[in-house]
């Protein structure tokens, strides 16, 4: 069990501790802790999950139940940047399907997959709350609005062909 805790870094532990100050019992910080670890490591591995569960005095099963509920907790490795491609109604009306195919071709991945160079993971996302600028997507933390073929080409210029 000692190894489990030490597998979380001091920064991670400090950030989790800061969340613990605001909750009545440790497991209540589960989502925050998952997000913290993910922010450092990109995703939550089985080992990370067990370490977090142990630190929060909850079972791995319970934490897994939480982690797998939320779509932005990644239980599989993702690329350096996650592309959250909005497929909801306003973007769809504005032709997002075609743009998605464009990305798919450009990067050589389908939704749910990571490029071979590990730069991008393409994921579907629900309405990003920028429907007036549809179609939109997020790459990493950046929102890209009013997408069209040229913009997409530019954004992924360096990754075209799925390799770099």
């Amino acid at each position: 069990m000692v190894e489990l805790i030490s597998s979380l870094s001091n920064e991670e532990l400090a950030a989790i501790d800061a969340e613990l100050a605001h909750v009545p019992y440790k497991s209540a910080a589960a989502i925050d802790a998952l997000k913290i670890v993910q922010s450092f490591r990109g995703w939550v591995s089985d080992e990370s999950l067990k370490a977090i569960a142990h630190y929060l005095e909850m079972s791995a099963a319970e934490l897994e139940g939480i982690a797998t509920f939320y779509n932005l907790i990644y239980r599989q490795p993702v690329g350096d940047k996650v592309i959250l491609f909005c497929g909801s109604v306003s973007c769809w009306i504005k032709g997002c399907d075609g743009l998605r195919s464009q990305i798919t071709e450009l990067l050589g991945v389908r939704e749910g997959e990571t490029t071979a160079d590990n730069k991008y993971t393409l994921l579907p996302v629900t309405c990003l709350g920028a429907c007036d600028k549809a179609p939109v997507m997020m790459v990493g933390e950046d929102l890209h609005e009013d997408l069209d073929r040229q913009k997409i080409q530019k954004i992924f210029a360096s990754s075209a062909g799925g390799e770099s």
């Binding site: 079972s59 791995a60 099963a61 897994e64 139940g65």
Partner: peptide
């Protein structure tokens, strides 16, 4: 050590 996992019609009941 038994929990509900995932969401919508993928809900799964099992161990981690």
């Amino acid at each position: 050590d038994l929990a509900a996992m995932a969401a919508h019609d993928h809900v799964y009941f099992g161990r981690h």
